[in-house]
Amino acid sequence: MPELTTEDDRAGADDASRLAREVGPPVPPSPRDKPFLVRFYGSAVGKKSVMALTGIMLLGFVLVHMIGNLKIYLGASHLNEYGEWLRMIGEPALPRTVFLWLLRIGLIGAFAFHIHSAYSLTRMNQRARPVKYQSHREYVAANFASRTMRWTGIIVGLFIIFHLADLTWGFANPDFVRGSVYANAIHSFSRVPVAIIYIVANIALGIHIFHGSWSMFQSLGLNNPRFNIWRRYFAVGFAALITVGNVSMPLMVVTGVVK
């Protein structure tokens, strides 16, 4: 009788208590039957590690991608060469673009896992508080970045689709010419709405990274009181670098500095 959470005869018990009652006491020992990676990914802590690992891959990509793109300031030939170089890595051991495709597959996988775990953790967290606070919450530590991860993430996700349509596949870009990376980018960014999309998306990305690149240390348990302060510095620095670097390109083009 006294286990409020185990009582099933409490007619019309609200959702709030049902969540707890589904897993009534006593707690059974965890079964260890599934392959351990499946099990691991089945847990929220596991998913968070996966998010962090895929997050690191994505961070790496974004950084390298930005460095490559910054060649836009060195002129068309540099950027185009870079685009060409990307396709040539691994030659002659590997056929042309094979390495690039390996990279792409890795990237697609990382995105897929990152998004899937983001989605399922978000659902889990929504279920964990079926009745919201009815009065105003006063946050102390949770900041704008940490509370908007799923929104900034979605913005970045949608942006990537647009971005691919714009600069890789080309159907969102009327002036698209396959292979002339520099010209495509300049044409694209010269259009004000597109430039705005780029700028907004990259600010969102910066915010996402601001929390993510600190949070991933916690998720992976990389913690040492002596270095903890550097995790913050790293996150601020990285987010700032990516935001400034990426926002500068559409900004410079749309304002006509780079043509």
Binding site: N125, R127, S146, M149, Q218
Partner: peptide, 8 residues
């Protein structure tokens, strides 16, 4: 729920 490191 799961921790997303809000620190709250």
């Amino acid at each position: 729920g799961s921790c997303t490191n809000h620190g709250e």
